[in-house]
Design a protein around this nucleic acid. Structure first.
Length: 275
DNA sequence: CGTTACCCCTGGAGGC
DNA sequence: TGCCTCCAGGGGTAAC
Protein backbone atom coordinates (compact mmCIF):
# COMPACT_ATOMS: atom_id res chain seq x y z
CA UNK A 1 0.00 0.00 0.00
CA UNK A 2 1.73 3.14 -1.17
CA UNK A 3 2.13 5.83 1.42
CA UNK A 4 4.23 8.96 1.23
CA UNK A 5 7.58 7.12 1.28
CA UNK A 6 6.57 4.78 -1.53
CA UNK A 7 5.32 7.71 -3.60
CA UNK A 8 8.55 9.60 -3.00
CA UNK A 9 10.66 6.59 -3.95
CA UNK A 10 8.55 6.17 -7.09
CA UNK A 11 9.29 9.77 -7.96
CA UNK A 12 13.01 9.35 -7.39
CA UNK A 13 12.99 6.17 -9.43
CA UNK A 14 11.42 7.91 -12.41
CA UNK A 15 13.71 10.95 -12.34
CA UNK A 16 16.60 9.33 -14.28
CA UNK A 17 14.26 8.33 -17.11
CA UNK A 18 11.32 10.65 -17.74
CA UNK A 19 12.21 14.35 -17.48
CA UNK A 20 13.02 15.60 -20.95
CA UNK A 21 11.09 12.79 -22.63
CA UNK A 22 8.25 13.62 -24.99
CA UNK A 23 4.89 11.90 -24.72
CA UNK A 24 3.69 10.16 -27.85
CA UNK A 25 0.30 9.53 -26.30
CA UNK A 26 -1.56 7.47 -23.74
CA UNK A 27 -3.44 4.20 -23.77
CA UNK A 28 -6.41 3.73 -21.46
CA UNK A 29 -7.68 0.21 -20.96
CA UNK A 30 -10.14 1.05 -18.22
CA UNK A 31 -13.04 3.24 -19.29
CA UNK A 32 -13.33 5.15 -16.08
CA UNK A 33 -10.74 5.68 -13.43
CA UNK A 34 -11.75 7.79 -10.51
CA UNK A 35 -12.37 11.34 -11.68
CA UNK A 36 -10.46 10.79 -14.90
CA UNK A 37 -11.61 11.53 -18.42
CA UNK A 38 -9.47 9.06 -20.38
CA UNK A 39 -10.55 9.97 -23.91
CA UNK A 40 -9.85 13.65 -23.65
CA UNK A 41 -6.69 12.99 -21.72
CA UNK A 42 -5.20 10.66 -24.31
CA UNK A 43 -5.71 13.23 -27.03
CA UNK A 44 -4.36 16.08 -24.94
CA UNK A 45 -1.09 14.45 -23.95
CA UNK A 46 0.48 13.75 -27.33
CA UNK A 47 3.48 15.96 -28.02
CA UNK A 48 3.95 17.22 -24.50
CA UNK A 49 7.30 16.93 -22.78
CA UNK A 50 7.67 15.91 -19.15
CA UNK A 51 9.79 18.65 -17.66
CA UNK A 52 9.78 17.66 -13.99
CA UNK A 53 8.16 15.32 -11.49
CA UNK A 54 7.25 16.59 -8.05
CA UNK A 55 5.25 15.29 -5.12
CA UNK A 56 2.60 16.81 -2.88
CA UNK A 57 1.41 14.54 -0.10
CA UNK A 58 0.74 11.25 -1.86
CA UNK A 59 0.18 12.89 -5.23
CA UNK A 60 2.75 12.63 -8.00
CA UNK A 61 2.76 15.72 -10.21
CA UNK A 62 4.10 15.50 -13.76
CA UNK A 63 4.86 18.92 -15.22
CA UNK A 64 4.03 18.54 -18.92
CA UNK A 65 4.68 21.70 -20.88
CA UNK A 66 5.35 22.69 -24.47
CA UNK A 67 5.74 25.87 -26.47
CA UNK A 68 2.01 26.29 -26.95
CA UNK A 69 1.24 25.64 -23.29
CA UNK A 70 0.66 22.49 -21.37
CA UNK A 71 -0.45 21.31 -17.97
CA UNK A 72 0.01 18.79 -15.22
CA UNK A 73 -0.70 15.13 -14.83
CA UNK A 74 -1.89 14.47 -11.31
CA UNK A 75 -1.47 10.86 -10.20
CA UNK A 76 -2.50 9.21 -6.95
CA UNK A 77 -1.68 5.54 -6.45
CA UNK A 78 -4.60 4.89 -4.14
CA UNK A 79 -3.98 1.86 -2.02
CA UNK A 80 -2.93 -0.68 -4.62
CA UNK A 81 -1.46 1.41 -7.41
CA UNK A 82 2.05 0.90 -8.77
CA UNK A 83 4.18 2.27 -11.57
CA UNK A 84 6.74 0.58 -13.71
CA UNK A 85 8.74 1.40 -16.80
CA UNK A 86 8.46 -1.23 -19.51
CA UNK A 87 9.71 -1.58 -23.05
CA UNK A 88 7.26 -0.53 -25.78
CA UNK A 89 5.17 -3.50 -26.86
CA UNK A 90 5.27 -5.27 -23.51
CA UNK A 91 1.92 -7.06 -23.14
CA UNK A 92 -0.34 -5.55 -20.55
CA UNK A 93 -1.59 -7.68 -17.71
CA UNK A 94 -4.75 -7.58 -15.71
CA UNK A 95 -5.25 -4.26 -13.89
CA UNK A 96 -2.76 -2.43 -16.11
CA UNK A 97 -5.09 0.51 -16.67
CA UNK A 98 -2.97 3.20 -18.26
CA UNK A 99 0.17 3.48 -20.38
CA UNK A 100 1.94 6.78 -20.84
CA UNK A 101 3.85 6.17 -24.03
CA UNK A 102 7.24 7.73 -24.67
CA UNK A 103 9.47 7.06 -27.66
CA UNK A 104 11.75 4.60 -25.90
CA UNK A 105 9.79 3.55 -22.82
CA UNK A 106 6.31 3.19 -21.41
CA UNK A 107 5.18 4.26 -17.95
CA UNK A 108 2.60 1.67 -16.95
CA UNK A 109 0.07 2.26 -14.18
CA UNK A 110 -1.39 -0.80 -12.49
CA UNK A 111 -4.06 -0.54 -9.83
CA UNK A 112 -6.06 -3.67 -8.94
CA UNK A 113 -8.41 -1.95 -6.53
CA UNK A 114 -8.77 1.14 -8.63
CA UNK A 115 -8.65 3.66 -5.84
CA UNK A 116 -6.05 5.56 -7.80
CA UNK A 117 -6.60 8.90 -9.46
CA UNK A 118 -5.30 10.26 -12.75
CA UNK A 119 -6.21 13.83 -13.58
CA UNK A 120 -5.18 16.55 -15.96
CA UNK A 121 -4.82 20.18 -14.95
CA UNK A 122 -4.38 22.69 -17.76
CA UNK A 123 -1.91 25.51 -17.20
CA UNK A 124 1.58 26.27 -16.00
CA UNK A 125 0.95 25.77 -12.27
CA UNK A 126 -0.87 23.05 -10.41
CA UNK A 127 -1.25 24.77 -7.04
CA UNK A 128 -4.81 25.86 -7.67
CA UNK A 129 -6.17 22.46 -8.64
CA UNK A 130 -9.02 21.67 -6.22
CA UNK A 131 -7.41 18.43 -5.02
CA UNK A 132 -4.00 20.02 -4.53
CA UNK A 133 -4.86 23.44 -3.13
CA UNK A 134 -6.66 21.92 -0.13
CA UNK A 135 -3.72 19.80 0.99
CA UNK A 136 -2.19 20.52 4.37
CA UNK A 137 1.42 20.96 5.41
CA UNK A 138 4.16 18.67 4.08
CA UNK A 139 5.42 16.55 6.96
CA UNK A 140 8.99 16.58 5.64
CA UNK A 141 9.11 20.34 5.13
CA UNK A 142 10.95 22.74 7.42
CA UNK A 143 7.68 24.46 8.28
CA UNK A 144 6.41 21.30 9.94
CA UNK A 145 7.77 21.56 13.47
CA UNK A 146 6.56 21.50 17.07
CA UNK A 147 5.62 25.19 17.01
CA UNK A 148 3.42 24.69 13.98
CA UNK A 149 1.81 21.52 15.24
CA UNK A 150 1.19 22.90 18.71
CA UNK A 151 -0.44 26.08 17.38
CA UNK A 152 -2.49 24.23 14.77
CA UNK A 153 -4.04 21.87 17.32
CA UNK A 154 -5.11 24.31 20.02
CA UNK A 155 -8.76 24.27 18.91
CA UNK A 156 -8.88 20.65 17.74
CA UNK A 157 -10.60 18.35 20.22
CA UNK A 158 -10.46 15.36 17.85
CA UNK A 159 -8.22 12.42 18.71
CA UNK A 160 -4.69 12.97 17.42
CA UNK A 161 -4.55 9.90 15.19
CA UNK A 162 -7.37 10.70 12.74
CA UNK A 163 -6.08 14.28 12.69
CA UNK A 164 -2.61 13.10 11.60
CA UNK A 165 -4.30 11.20 8.79
CA UNK A 166 -6.37 14.19 7.62
CA UNK A 167 -4.71 15.21 4.37
CA UNK A 168 -6.17 18.69 4.66
CA UNK A 169 -4.22 19.05 7.90
CA UNK A 170 -1.00 17.15 7.10
CA UNK A 171 -0.54 15.72 3.62
CA UNK A 172 0.64 12.17 3.22
CA UNK A 173 0.48 10.38 6.57
CA UNK A 174 -1.55 7.18 6.22
CA UNK A 175 -2.85 4.64 8.68
CA UNK A 176 0.40 2.74 9.09
CA UNK A 177 2.71 5.70 9.57
CA UNK A 178 0.26 7.45 11.90
CA UNK A 179 0.20 4.41 14.17
CA UNK A 180 3.95 3.85 14.07
CA UNK A 181 4.81 7.52 14.66
CA UNK A 182 2.48 7.74 17.67
CA UNK A 183 4.02 4.61 19.16
CA UNK A 184 7.53 5.98 18.75
CA UNK A 185 6.45 9.25 20.36
CA UNK A 186 4.67 7.48 23.23
CA UNK A 187 1.39 9.28 22.54
CA UNK A 188 -1.98 7.56 22.67
CA UNK A 189 -3.87 7.73 19.37
CA UNK A 190 -7.02 8.44 21.41
CA UNK A 191 -5.69 11.59 23.08
CA UNK A 192 -7.38 14.83 22.10
CA UNK A 193 -5.05 16.90 19.93
CA UNK A 194 -5.50 20.02 22.04
CA UNK A 195 -4.50 18.15 25.18
CA UNK A 196 -0.97 17.43 24.01
CA UNK A 197 1.77 19.82 25.03
CA UNK A 198 4.56 21.32 22.97
CA UNK A 199 7.25 19.06 24.40
CA UNK A 200 5.31 15.95 23.43
CA UNK A 201 4.65 17.40 19.97
CA UNK A 202 8.38 17.90 19.60
CA UNK A 203 8.79 14.15 20.02
CA UNK A 204 5.93 13.45 17.63
CA UNK A 205 7.36 15.65 14.88
CA UNK A 206 10.71 13.91 15.25
CA UNK A 207 9.01 10.50 15.17
CA UNK A 208 7.03 11.34 12.03
CA UNK A 209 10.14 12.67 10.31
CA UNK A 210 12.35 9.73 11.17
CA UNK A 211 9.67 7.15 10.38
CA UNK A 212 9.01 8.60 6.93
CA UNK A 213 12.66 9.23 6.15
CA UNK A 214 13.85 5.79 7.16
CA UNK A 215 11.16 4.26 4.95
CA UNK A 216 12.26 6.43 2.04
CA UNK A 217 15.88 5.43 2.66
CA UNK A 218 14.91 1.76 2.79
CA UNK A 219 12.98 2.10 -0.47
CA UNK A 220 15.74 4.02 -2.16
CA UNK A 221 18.30 1.41 -1.25
CA UNK A 222 16.10 -1.38 -2.59
CA UNK A 223 15.53 0.53 -5.80
CA UNK A 224 18.24 -0.53 -8.19
CA UNK A 225 16.93 -0.02 -11.66
CA UNK A 226 13.38 1.15 -12.06
CA UNK A 227 13.33 0.63 -15.80
CA UNK A 228 14.36 -2.98 -15.74
CA UNK A 229 13.00 -4.26 -12.47
CA UNK A 230 10.12 -6.53 -13.22
CA UNK A 231 8.00 -5.87 -10.22
CA UNK A 232 8.10 -2.13 -10.24
CA UNK A 233 8.53 -1.02 -6.69
CA UNK A 234 8.67 -3.79 -4.18
CA UNK A 235 6.96 -3.30 -0.91
CA UNK A 236 9.65 -1.96 1.36
CA UNK A 237 7.34 -1.06 4.18
CA UNK A 238 9.09 -0.46 7.45
CA UNK A 239 8.92 -3.20 10.02
CA UNK A 240 5.90 -2.29 12.11
CA UNK A 241 6.01 -2.13 15.89
CA UNK A 242 2.26 -1.84 16.46
CA UNK A 243 0.45 -1.78 13.11
CA UNK A 244 -1.15 -5.12 12.30
CA UNK A 245 0.01 -6.73 15.57
CA UNK A 246 -3.13 -6.88 17.75
CA UNK A 247 -2.65 -9.10 20.81
CA UNK A 248 1.06 -9.49 20.24
CA UNK A 249 3.42 -8.29 22.97
CA UNK A 250 4.61 -4.70 22.83
CA UNK A 251 8.28 -4.58 21.84
CA UNK A 252 8.95 -2.17 24.69
CA UNK A 253 6.88 -3.43 27.65
CA UNK A 254 5.64 -6.87 26.58
CA UNK A 255 2.00 -6.03 27.28
CA UNK A 256 -0.43 -6.85 24.44
CA UNK A 257 -0.99 -4.44 21.55
CA UNK A 258 -4.59 -3.25 21.41
CA UNK A 259 -6.72 -2.71 18.30
CA UNK A 260 -9.54 -0.16 18.24
CA UNK A 261 -11.53 1.61 15.55
CA UNK A 262 -11.25 5.34 15.01
CA UNK A 263 -13.25 7.18 12.36
CA UNK A 264 -13.84 3.91 10.56
CA UNK A 265 -10.18 2.88 10.54
CA UNK A 266 -8.33 0.36 12.62
CA UNK A 267 -5.84 1.74 15.11
CA UNK A 268 -3.12 -0.25 16.84
CA UNK A 269 -1.33 0.95 19.95
CA UNK A 270 0.16 -0.02 23.29
CA UNK A 271 -2.07 1.30 26.10
CA UNK A 272 0.84 1.03 28.52
CA UNK A 273 3.53 2.83 26.53
CA UNK A 274 1.26 5.36 24.82
CA UNK A 275 -0.52 7.93 27.00
C1' DC B 1 -16.80 24.90 11.11
C1' DG B 2 -15.45 20.26 13.04
C1' DT B 3 -16.31 15.58 12.90
C1' DT B 4 -18.28 11.19 11.34
C1' DA B 5 -20.43 7.61 8.19
C1' DC B 6 -20.39 5.94 3.90
C1' DC B 7 -18.85 5.01 -0.81
C1' DC B 8 -15.69 3.77 -4.51
C1' DC B 9 -13.05 -1.32 -5.81
C1' DT B 10 -10.86 -5.89 -5.75
C1' DG B 11 -8.50 -9.71 -3.74
C1' DG B 12 -7.25 -12.25 0.14
C1' DA B 13 -8.47 -14.43 4.46
C1' DG B 14 -11.38 -16.94 7.26
C1' DG B 15 -15.79 -19.39 8.36
C1' DC B 16 -18.93 -23.02 7.18
C1' DT C 1 -13.82 -27.48 -2.62
C1' DG C 2 -16.59 -23.52 -3.06
C1' DC C 3 -19.38 -19.97 -1.49
C1' DC C 4 -20.21 -16.40 1.62
C1' DT C 5 -18.85 -12.42 4.44
C1' DC C 6 -15.62 -9.25 6.03
C1' DC C 7 -11.84 -6.38 5.69
C1' DA C 8 -7.99 -3.33 3.97
C1' DG C 9 -6.79 1.34 2.13
C1' DG C 10 -7.25 7.30 0.77
C1' DG C 11 -10.03 10.81 -0.06
C1' DG C 12 -14.43 12.91 -1.63
C1' DT C 13 -19.06 13.83 -0.35
C1' DA C 14 -23.09 14.13 2.42
C1' DA C 15 -24.94 14.64 6.73
C1' DC C 16 -24.93 15.67 11.48
Amino acid sequence: MPELPEVEVSRQGLLPYLPGQRLLGAIFRTPKLRHALPGELAARLAGLRVDAISRRGKFLLFDCQCASGGGWLILHLGMSGSLRLVDPGTPAQKHDHVDLVFSSTVLRFRDPRRFGVLLWHEGSTVDRHPMISVLGIEPLSDEFDDDWLYAATRRRATPIKPLLMDSHFIAGIGNIYAAESLFRAGISPLRAANRIGKERYRHLVAAIRSTLQSAIAAGGSSLRDYAHSDGGLGSFQLSCRVYGRPGEPCMRCNKPIRAVRQAGRSTFYCPHCQR
